[in-house]
Computed example of a mutant assay.
Amino acid sequence: MKGLLVGGFAAIGTGSGAMLTLHAGSDLDPLHSVISEYVWQSAGWLLPASLTLFAVGSALIAEALRRAGMSRWVVALLVAWGASMFLIGAFPTDRPGVPLSLSGGIHRYAAFAAFLMMPAAGMLLAKAKIRYAKAVRILSAIALGALVLVVIPYVVRMFGIPMTNDDIPAGLTQRAVVVTELGVLALAGLSMLKPSARRGVSPALAA
């Protein structure tokens, strides 16, 4: 199990490094530009590479949790989150100003699904009283709050009210979701590093 966790952390760390490298080499404004737009930069290939690494890391940590006897719901949510990350990278968003395409639609809804699933997994992990349960609960709550801010502009546009990412800190709120969810995933893995980590898990959530 330790090998799975180390592999998961390595994948998450490498993916984070690729994401930071992509941002450092771009001239986009991270306050207003969403992460998906970085795929059109010269080093845009780093975006799907980073998301794929996140997916691999999530799968490895999910398997470690499964072997430790964690709830099947938690394991399923982490695997689904990883699958969504892969889809987000495999199906890039549309260029600004272009009507929504099939690829753009898959990208958008996979991202929304992922943004919902990790906080749900985090709340279940916190309820199971894993190590770092309080931190996991706080990060999950922040992720959900930031997700609401991400969704609001889409709802506003549905009512015909024009709003662009330049009018709001769309990039900031989206990055808040991503960072906090990666934090939940990392803490889920860290909680399993010691053999004693499972002692306080609720039996109802460990089946």
Rank of each mutant, 00 (worst) to 15 (best):
A143M: 09
P169N: 03
D167R: 10
A110T: 04
G97W: 09
M123G: 11
A80G: 04
A90W: 13
G89R: 08
D29I: 01
R95S: 07
V178T: 10
A24H: 08
S36M: 07
G25L: 11
T93Y: 02
S36G: 14
S33N: 10
T173Y: 12
G57N: 05
I88H: 02
P30L: 04
S58Q: 13
R157D: 01
I142Q: 09
Y109K: 01
I142M: 14
G97N: 07
V74T: 12
L172F: 15
S50M: 13
H23L: 12
A120M: 14
P153Q: 13
A110P: 13
G15E: 01
I12P: 00
L47T: 05
A120G: 09
G17M: 07
A114W: 05
Y132M: 10
L125Q: 12
Q41V: 11
L172A: 15
T164L: 12
F9D: 07
A186V: 15
Y109V: 11
T173E: 13
G145V: 06
W81D: 08
L51F: 15
G105M: 09
I12T: 06
V79M: 08
L20K: 09
S101T: 15
T164H: 05
S140P: 09
G3A: 15
V39L: 06
V156H: 02
W81P: 00
F91V: 04
R67C: 05
P162D: 10
F112Y: 14
V75Y: 01
I88R: 00
S202Y: 02
V6L: 13
G15W: 01
A80F: 07
L20E: 06
A197W: 02
L182E: 04
G69W: 07
D166K: 14
A128W: 03
K129P: 00
A10I: 11
G160V: 11
E181S: 14
R157P: 08
F159H: 14
L28G: 03
R66H: 14
A206K: 10
A55Q: 04
A170W: 00
A126W: 02
L147H: 06
R108D: 05
A188F: 01
S71P: 01
S16A: 15
R66S: 12
L65E: 13
V39R: 13
N165W: 11
P96E: 10
I35C: 02
E37V: 04
W45E: 05
G82M: 05
S196L: 07
L185I: 15
G7P: 01
F86N: 03
A128G: 13
A110N: 08
A188V: 09
T52C: 06
N165H: 14
P162C: 12
T52V: 08
Y38V: 02
